[in-house]
Design a protein around this nucleic acid. Structure first.
Lengths: 153, 153
DNA sequence: CCTAGTTCGTAAGGTAACCTTACTAAAAAA
DNA sequence: TTTTTTAGTAAGGTTACCTTACGAACTAGG
């Protein structure tokens, strides 16, 4: 009596999983040094994936507020890993580019990501991995919908 | 050239997913009021699942440091949702119990969890959900191993 | 029994990932 | 040309953690 339904436990499992994944990523990241925090590494990763984009576009892709991105970019810029170039077609906007110095860092981040991946998948039979990854992508899409819904206040 | 391997993207997807799940949980939680933060709600949930346990046991189950738990329990206790009773067999230890007042809150947390679950699974064909949940559990187990390995310094 | 080492919870203080609000400068619309 | 929108940012807050340092109580070893 009064018990929330059984599936609730499964969802908390997912919430816990989220925590653990983040933690693992942070731990692996600190192992490969880089001197970056998780947020900064994530940002660098996104700049690598979307080079020469405006901060607003980047923030949108990362699902953080523009202001949050500013902080990460400030650090990365001070460390000489990215540069902000004024958009020739709009003097307010800045296009974010990687510097050559970022290359080795990206490789380290890649190593960390790889480690997390191996760990997460180590007990999953290889033939199921493909399925899992697709399902995860689908999950992400579902969750994104709601996040953006919330935004268009 | 210089590109980290392709799977790196998939792992970042999982890292992003972790972020989104947390965020969704927080958002849903604030919708159903409760006045609790995500960490506090998670704690209450665990007390419900492991009633009458010591704080150390609880912290262990939640994979947080005992000190982290103290903060959450302090808030919950002040709100009259749990109580700490001295363990009769060890005057240092405290056993954590729910109070009756916690019941409705737990139901709200259940609602929030349910919402996250629906959202996360909405685009997943029902016949795949079972598989997904099993895979997620397996993933969690893999990640936990490493976390605990790190702990036994 | 008594001393030495463990264990339980906790106070103090720190870091990192975010967010909101408020502002300036520039562009776009009216 | 005035008004409105948009791009970035400074300032400051919240939450989820962690580490370090301790005192009080249990457990062993002699």
């Amino acid at each position: 009596m009064g018990l929330p339904e059984p599936n609730v436990g499964v969802t908390m499992l997912v919430v816990d999983l989220a925590r653990l994944l983040r933690r693992n990523f942070e731990a692996e990241l600190s192992k490969v040094d880089t001197g970056l925090t998780a947020g900064e590494a994530r940002t660098l990763f996104y700049v690598w994936r979307l080079p020469g984009q405006r901060q607003a576009v980047l923030a949108d892709a990362m699902y953080v507020e523009p202001m949050t991105l500013v902080g990460y970019l400030d650090t990365l810029e001070k460390a000489g890993l990215i540069k902000r170039c004024t958009d020739p077609s709009d003097r307010r906007a800045k296009l974010v580019e990687l510097t050559p110095k970022a290359q080795p860092l990206l490789e380290n981040i890649g190593t960390a990501l790889h480690a997390v991946r191996s760990r997460a998948l180590e007990n999953i039979p290889p033939d199921k991995r493909q399925v899992l990854e697709m399902l995860l992508q689908t999950m992400k899409d579902g969750l994104l919908e709601e996040v953006s819904k919330g935004k268009q206040k």
